[in-house]
Design a protein around this nucleic acid. Structure first.
Lengths: 240, 240
DNA sequence: AATCCTATGTGCGGCAACGCACATAGAGGC
DNA sequence: GCCTCTATGTGCGTTGCCGCACATAGGATT
């Protein structure tokens, strides 16, 4: 769903931290190219290998970068929210990427045509610096994922994923089924159920039918693997 | 080991495919900043979080990007050879990265001071485009690693790793122990031994004490998971 | 030749996650 | 109320990998 024809609200657009960090002149140059757009849960922002026309700056929505194997099994490589941008391949020069982007939390974003984004990027000023630093933070996130996938248990990875999602959602109520999470973590649905049960028993979360509530964030933090903090620290170091 | 004071051999430097793809003027601008350097196996190019002064363009050497957990366990996130560059954080703007780079195959490289590299990067011309496209290819590699770690067996991952290493080494003889490989794959040494035995039994490889020979590349290709080709295709698409 | 060091082989118990099958239980439509 | 659909719970045998302990065997050193 896209609204057209009126100038975007600066305060709303600057909720996205990359847009928010732009100097006034740069923001003004980009402003007329921004279009508000609403994402609903499960929507596919772009397909693996597909032609990308836009970059997306999420404000209240967040988007999973997913990889799908030939046999259909999936795993998440990264998660993008208001701190980032979807579509880095457009300024990195690859035009497309071999992964899919899917809305994991409904909400709003601003999109911009590739060409408008590239014009500003090529000025080599703050916009470029921000996007590249963000890309480095995303690389850290993906790397950490690679290592975490290898070395940590489903339960720890579930904690991490809940915390990351909680950071992006503006609420303690998360709308998602065990099945959905299992596709993100690349494990069986039953595995998620078992891990979620244990977290529920000790009062960290509670859940019913596609609805998870974060009850005790501190306890989750005490339980999660180091990977969560590493990614978070690196994000604030680079984009703080 | 660094040689100084003489102009570098253009043919040698251009063995690195990023340097090799530069237009003549750009190469000439960079040339005086290039220093040949020799890497020996196991050498640490930079430490996690360390201050980086140089970027490195491998020619005959190849370098592992490694991640180390707090408990000391390690896993590889990516592998850089003549097609790439070590030190992307310097142009991405992060200055450092939370991972270590270690020489996995001895040989030569060219290094360049961060400032000289940045001056050329900021021109926004071919050098920048090449580095960014390479970075995107590296992201694909890291992502694929994340997913492969999650979904594929030690044996398949060993095949993949041997093929990737074989592509970078200019020889069928690889110098590395099971222990070393286990740190790359993030598994037990015994796990590598078992997998290597199976590959040896069917004649794909043979090995003795820190010395592995690739005997039947085709069979390895038939055995490896899809991840190998995905990364390879993406590399040639982006840097072809 | 004796010694040491490092690389590899092997066995065993344990556990986490898998695949599969099927049971229950909210939620919504009729 | 009844039906259906989807989400979650549970059991069971299997497997891949783990951690550990220890055996063997090249290579290098003396």
């Amino acid at each position: 769903m896209v609204e057209k024809g009126k100038e975007v609200n600066e305060n709303e657009a600057r909720c996205n931290r990359l847009l928010g960090a732009l100097p006034p002149e740069a923001f003004e140059r980009l402003r007329i190219h921004l279009e508000p757009i609403s994402f609903s849960l499960g929507e596919v922002v772009y397909e693996s290998g597909g032609h990308m026309q836009y970059v997306y700056f999420p404000t209240t929505s967040h988007i999973s970068l997913l990889y799908t194997m030939l046999d259909g099994s999936t795993a998440e490589m990264g998660l993008v929210g208001q701190e980032g941008v979807v579509g880095i391949a457009l300024f990195m020069g690859g035009e497309t990427t071999p992964n899919r982007a899917m809305v994991q939390g409904g909400g709003f974003a601003f999109r911009m045509k590739a060409k408008a984004m590239l014009d500003e990027f090529k000025r080599g000023e703050e916009f470029q610096h921000l996007l590249l630093r963000y890309t480095q933070a995303l690389i850290t996130q993906i790397s950490q994922n690679a290592v975490c996938n290898r070395l940590h248990s489903v339960e720890q990875r579930l904690c991490r994923w809940l915390l990351m999602t909680h950071d992006l959602a503006q609420t303690d109520q998360l709308q998602m089924t065990h099945e959905f999470i299992s596709n993100m973590l690349g494990v069986r649905r039953e595995g998620v159920t078992m891990a979620a049960q244990r977290l529920q028993e000790v009062g960290m979360i509670s859940y019913v039918r596609g609805h998870i509530q974060i009850l005790d964030r501190k306890q989750l933090l005490a339980h999660v693997c180091e990977c969560y903090q590493v990614v978070k620290n690196e994000h604030s170091r680079l984009l703080g």
